[in-house]
Amino acid sequence: MVVFGQFLEVLIGGLLAGVLYSLVALGFVLIFKASGVFNFAQGAMVLLAGLALVRSLDFMVARGVPVWAAIVLGLVFAGLIMAISAWLIERFVVGPLVNQDGLTLFMSTIGATFIIEGAAQLIFGSDVYPLRLFPTDAWFLFESAFPGGILVNKLDVWGGLIAGILVTGLAIFFQKTKTGRALRAVADDHAAAQSVGIPISWIWFVVWLVAGLVALVAATVWGTKLGVQFSITFLALKALPVLIIGGFTSVPGAIVGGLLIGAGEKLAEVYLGPFIGGGIEYWFAYVLALAVLLARPQGLFGERIIERI
């Protein structure tokens, strides 16, 4: 029973950690779906959103604004910052490159990454800023069934909840709304979308805005976990295997990929670690991604690459 209890604990912890990876991966999926661009700047956007939020919070709380109001205003302010950056990116980075090759656009987002990282730290500061939006203590579940119960981090549960809401919302937005449909159309064929009167610049602004808001949500959770700091941008690297496994174009894929990686790396760490040496957590995701690339290059849920003859 102790063994099973430990297994469950590792599994649940892993799954919930995986959801947090999914949160970052979602931002990538959104932009890739709608513009065919692999957005290298997603990690930097999480940093920007986090810094905007935490610094405005600190600023307001220090001046005696009640905490709940500060949180609301801080979220609004950070959302506004993401909207402005979405507009700037559309206007100056991807906008002039409509109809260009995916690789060209990808390169331009690398450039945007450095600018966002630099600007964010220049404006908001480059220290480690603690953020406390969610409880970080632990729950002990099923204490009657297992000795000592199962330890679950409350923050991870919050993260899971938020990701669930976000994914449902995004799925409805993409499948049911006019703008969502236009987003998918633009992703398929820029030129044809333009020809039926879909204004590409507006669509791309919307996409980058939504990705920016997803980055903000990811920043609230990850900021609480790690503190808002520069290393948060490396989350982008962790999201990459999630995307490869789930498929670059699938919102549910980002979630499932995150869960697989989260659970997989924690289980591997605990159960394989003693035999082949620790530190599995750091490379497990990439090896898994490599295996998926060999077997199913479009990912588990990726859109089939349609090739008519």
Binding site: K178, R181, R184, A185, D188, D189, A193, G197, I198, I306
Partner: peptide, 18 residues
């Protein structure tokens, strides 16, 4: 230039964007 990953009906509906 149809939108390959959209259904026929969704393709038609994108035409009504404006």
């Amino acid at each position: 230039h149809c939108f390959g990953h959209l259904t026929v009906e969704e393709n038609l509906l994108t035409g009504s964007f404006t």
